[in-house]
Amino acid sequence: MNDVAPATENASAIPPEELERLTGDIVAALKTVYDPEIPVDIYELGLIYKLEIEDNRDVTVDMTLTAPGCPVAGEMPGWVENAVGSVPGVGKVKVTMTFDPPWDQSRMSDEARVALDMW
Rank of each mutant, 00 (worst) to 15 (best):
D25V: 01
V4C: 10
D55N: 15
V27G: 01
E20P: 00
V4S: 10
I14E: 09
V93E: 01
V40S: 00
G46S: 11
S106E: 12
A29D: 03
W119A: 14
C70N: 01
L22H: 03
D3Q: 14
S106H: 09
A73H: 04
A28M: 02
E20M: 08
V27M: 02
E81H: 13
R113G: 09
P15A: 08
L19R: 09
T98D: 13
A5T: 13
N10K: 14
P16T: 03
V72L: 06
A13E: 15
L65N: 00
A83S: 06
D3M: 07
G91H: 07
L116V: 05
P77K: 02
I14C: 10
G85I: 10
K50T: 13
V95Q: 02
K94I: 01
G85P: 07
V84W: 07
L116N: 09
D104A: 11
K31T: 01
E20G: 04
T32V: 08
V72W: 03
E17P: 00
T64W: 02
V33C: 03
A29N: 03
K50E: 15
K50Q: 15
E52K: 15
S12W: 12
P68F: 06
V80R: 05
D110L: 11
E9A: 13
V114A: 09
Y49H: 14
L47S: 10
E111G: 00
P6E: 06
V84A: 09
V40H: 04
P88T: 00
R21Y: 01
M63F: 06
I26R: 07
I42N: 06
R57N: 07
L30M: 14
D62R: 11
A73I: 10
V4G: 01
A73V: 15
L51K: 08
V80N: 08
I38W: 12
G78D: 13
T32W: 08
V90F: 07
P88I: 00
Y49I: 04
M108L: 04
I26A: 10
G46K: 05
T98P: 14
R57M: 08
P16Q: 06
M1C: 11
K31A: 04
T98M: 10
S12D: 12
M76H: 02
P6Y: 03
K92T: 09
G78F: 11
D117H: 13
V114Q: 08
I48K: 09
E75M: 11
E54Q: 14
S109P: 08
I26T: 06
E18M: 04
V72G: 00
A83T: 05
M76V: 13
W79T: 00
P39C: 02
V95H: 03
